[in-house]
Write a protein that binds this DNA or RNA. Structure first.
Length: 224
DNA sequence: TCGTGATCATTC
DNA sequence: GAATGATCACGA
């Protein structure tokens, strides 16, 4: 099957989402000549890339929404048999310098989370990738309460980064958003603000949504 | 090196 | 069992 073109409307996008709901990843992969890996040890982003392709995402590796024309971000969400998220959800890298004057409404994470197409994937560990099942995708926008919690966490984390306290931040900070390493390995370094205001070398970080928060989104959608 | 896609694996 | 810190692949 030829490479899908980007959907022109949200309606068209959702029709494609509905068309793959209930299929196994093996079935989706076969439609697009993707080779399904035996495990995800060396292909951790394989599911996301397959789904992006199948739905016609055009964002590429740019820091833009997957469906640039629609301003919609696609996120696959691994879930257990009971419908609970199995992993935290990566959102974007974390700027570590030049963020004086940045406000929530202009942050990368805010822009990415404004419109999200969640696509749950039944990804229990005892299921081989080929047998994992695509769930029912749905469009989501944070409600005022969720948006307020996202903003609160972001402001706390951003203030610490500005004050040179990046090394004090670990995954325990934040109620719904956390900061964790996001790198090829522990030797990859980038610049950040240090304790004395000077630039230091540190591990690149990323914003992740905690499983409790994504679980809440699923519960809100499916009434779990 | 950074940003995309995330999950792995050890620790708690 | 859940969560944190570490890691894998790829394109520009």
């Amino acid at each position: 099957m030829a490479r899908p073109t980007p959907p022109t409307t949200a309606t068209e996008l959702m029709q494609r989402v509905d068309a793959i709901a209930g299929l196994t990843l093996g079935e989706v992969a076969a439609q697009y000549q993707f080779t399904t890996p035996q495990n995800l040890l060396r292909d951790k982003g394989w599911i996301g890339q397959l789904i992006e392709y199948a739905l016609g995402a055009d964002g590429g590796s740019k820091p833009e929404p997957d469906f640039s024309h629609l301003s919609i971000e696609l996120k696959t969400l691994p879930i257990s048999y009971s419908g609970k998220p199995l992993e935290t959800t990566y959102v974007s890298v974390t700027p570590l310098k030049n963020l004086q004057n940045t406000v929530w409404e202009e942050s990368v994470i805010y822009k990415k989370l404004r419109h999200v197409l969640w696509l749950p994937i039944l990804s229990e560990r005892d299921l081989a990738p080929v047998d994992r099942i695509v769930g029912s995708g749905f469009l989501w926008q944070p409600n005022p309460n969720q948006m307020a919690r996202l903003k609160q966490d972001w402001e706390e984390l951003t203030e610490m980064i500005c004050l040179g306290k990046i090394e004090q931040i670990n995954g325990r900070f934040g109620q719904v958003v956390q900061l964790r390493p996001k790198a090829a390995n522990s030797k990859a370094l980038t610049e950040a603000i240090g304790p004395n205001g000077h630039l230091i070398q540190t591990l690149p970080r990323g914003y992740y949504l905690k499983t409790h928060f994504t679980g809440e989104i699923l519960a809100q959608q499916f009434g779990l």
